[in-house]
């Protein structure tokens, strides 16, 4: 169980590392509006929030 959790967390790290770096970042680095927010601002905070939720889901205590 612990191994799976660790693997998930490592995958999460790699995924977010890619999401928050170039070249993906250049796709959203433009003057644009998404849901009333600037595109880059929205994207960064969205990925960030996604990371937090994902971590919380992975590490949450499972009921036995």
């Amino acid at each position: 169980m612990s191994d799976r959790r660790e693997a998930n967390l490592l995958l999460l790290f790699i995924t977010v590392l890619i999401l928050l770096n170039y070249p993906l970042l250049s796709l959203v680095d433009r003057q644009d509006h998404w849901f009333g927010f600037p595109a880059l601002y929205f994207y960064l905070f969205f990925v960030w929030l996604g990371l937090i939720v994902a971590v919380a889901l992975v590490v949450r205590k499972r009921k036995k």
Binding site: E6, L10, F13, W48, V55
Partner: peptide, 13 residues
């Protein structure tokens, strides 16, 4: 702030 947040999943290990 993204750097530390990004590292957080690895804290577990």
């Amino acid at each position: 702030y993204l750097g530390p947040s990004l590292l957080a999943p690895l804290w577990f290990v």
